[in-house]
Every structure is written in structure tokens, then in C-alpha cells.
Amino acid sequence: MFRKIFLHALAASALAIAAALVYRRIYFFATEIDFSRVASFKNLFSFCLIFCMVAAGINYLCFKFLKNRAEIIYNLILSAVSFALVMLPISISLPLDIKSPELFPGLAVPIVFFPALSWYTLMPLFGGE
């Protein structure tokens, strides 16, 4: 069972990373502000992969111990964590040489939802757990 969840997490993180990179590019064209030093490939990759792997662990534990209520509890946890993570880009202080830090949340806030969105998008392909 965990193998399937692990593959789901891996695919979701890959999709989230791709979406984040595309969105970062679009955001740069829209604002002309380069946040690639902060929202670097390495940082986006780490964030999406860690999020999806932790989600996989929680998913596995939920379905192992909660049985019937597993899905609703897991979905609630995933949504709550994603909402809570909104605080991260809002509260972070960027290096002082980066211009217009007030535009950073516009880039990073949507990205914190990408791993959860990717998870739900790929759910039908991995049996719905």
C-alpha cells in the first residue's frame, strides 16, 4: 500500500514543481521582479518534495488507523497545513538587495497550494487513497 502512496507523492511533487516553475516564469514576465534567488529551483524542489512525502506519511497513517474516517481527516489535514503555510511567504524577510519584497507573497502564496492541488489532481490515478 505504501508503495502506491509513495509513487503518488513522487508524481504529485513532480507536478507541483513543474507548476511552480511555470508560475514563477509567468510572475516574472508580469512583474519584472526576479525572485529566482529566493524561489530557486532547489527551494521549490525541496518544498514540494518534502510536502508531498510528509503528506504521504500522514495519508498512510490515516488509512492505517482511521479506516472509514481516513479520507475526510486526511483531506482536512492537507488543507489546513496548506492554509497555515500561507504565513511562511508573508512573514519571511528577503535579502535586502531584492527589490519590491511586497510582491513576493503574490508569487509564493499560490505555490504553497501547488503540492496539495497536485495530490488531489493525481488522486484518481493512484486509487483514491
Binding site: I90, S91, S93, L94, L96, P101, F104
Partner: peptide, 10 residues
């Protein structure tokens, strides 16, 4: 003024 954080700048 730039503190590195848009919210703090505001």
C-alpha cells in the same frame, strides 16, 4: 524603506 518584508515595509 526596505526591511526585506513587504508587510513590514507597509
Amino acid at each position: 524603506i526596505n526591511t526585506g518584508n513587504g508587510m513590514k515595509n507597509t
